[in-house]
């Protein structure tokens, strides 16, 4: 039997595609913000909340959430925090150079469950990156959604990302934007405290759809606040981070009980994972 004729025609899930860097920004000393377009000129078609594996040959691959909305059709954004070998190498890249991409992968935000509803996004730290794909989407198609509230918390003012966005959101009538820092500095005039200290500042209705993304410890405290507000758990969507090596449901690293974050998520309705002991 000759199998060699057909396996080369099957899509190989580990083959990346080349993307060219069209713009970079360095919002903090830790993070680099890349705007990319596919080298073959084809659009990147994805949903807010989906992920990619981004790589640099010789260094390796890292999983990242899209940091821009598919409504911005020509390009897409990724934000990389310098934490290890791959991210350190990627963050040395500049405009005109290439990043290799596998994706879009995983399940993003179910927009049909958010459309026509009040939406609250709670983003902590680097959790603003994947949620920015949804924030931009809502802002670009504002009439499809009702009230839009955004909470953003960071450790300190220097950790804030997307500074131009923050300026725009503070001034915008399309989003009720609230921000906080765990620890202020002399220049900071805003709220100081963990992200849950923003809840008393605004009326959140029980019918609001809530999206949460942030460090692992944040989820539990935010959900406690949402419980107090009477928000149903099927209306809470969590965007989870785990170690991933393949992002196609094989390598086992991102497993939470019987679910794979890379293919079953990274966005889950909280009602679908609240029974999983390892989830939150």
């Amino acid at each position: 039997m000759n199998h060699q004729c057909h396996w080369t025609e099957i899509e190989n899930i580990f083959m990346p595609r080349e993307a060219t860097i069209v713009r970079t920004a360095t919002p903090t000393p830790m993070e680099k913000h890349f705007t990319l377009k596919m080298a073959d000129g084809k659009p990147m078609t994805f949903e807010p909340g989906q992920i990619v594996e981004a790589s640099l040959f010789g260094y390796g691959e890292i999983p990242l959430g899209f940091a821009s909305s598919p409504t911005r059709e020509n390009t897409f954004d990724l934000v990389v925090r310098t934490v290890g070998r791959v991210s350190s190498a990627v963050n040395k890249l500049e405009k005109g150079q290439s990043i290799f991409i596998r994706g879009p992968l995983g399940k993003g935000f179910d927009l049909n469950k958010l459309r026509g509803k009040d939406v609250l996004i709670v983003a902590g730290g680097i959790g603003l990156c994947p949620t920015r794909s949804l924030i931009q989407y809502i802002m670009d198609r504002r009439t499809e959604f009702k009230r839009f509230v955004l909470f953003y918390g960071t450790r300190d003012p220097k950790q804030q990302l997307f500074l131009e966005d923050l300026v725009a959101w503070r001034a915008s009538k399309d989003v009720e934007y609230f921000e906080t820092v765990d620890k202020g500095d002399p220049s900071w005039k805003g709220n100081v405290g963990v992200i849950t200290t923003l809840f008393p500042k605004v009326q959140i209705t029980p019918e609001t759809r809530v999206v949460i993304c942030g460090p692992p410890v944040m989820f539990r405290f935010v959900i406690r606040e949402l419980d107090k507000l009477g928000i149903k758990r099927e209306n809470i969507f969590v965007d989870l981070e785990r170690r991933m090596k393949c992002a196609v449901g094989k390598c086992g690293h991102c497993q939470i009980n019987d679910k794979y974050v890379c293919v079953d998520g990274p966005v889950f309705a909280f009602s679908d994972i609240q029974g999983l002991e390892e989830a939150i």
């Binding site: 580990f14 790589s55 040959f57 010789g58 260094y59 390796g60 691959e61 090596k245 393949c246 094989k250 390598c251 086992g252 690293h253």
Partner: peptide, 21 residues
């Protein structure tokens, strides 16, 4: 068991290499 890690390695020429699980 079929879990795996994925790592890139360079060849001695420092230009080519491979991605291996």
């Amino acid at each position: 068991c079929y879990c795996f890690d994925v790592q890139d390695t360079w060849n001695v020429d420092q230009k080519s290499g491979s991605r291996t699980r």
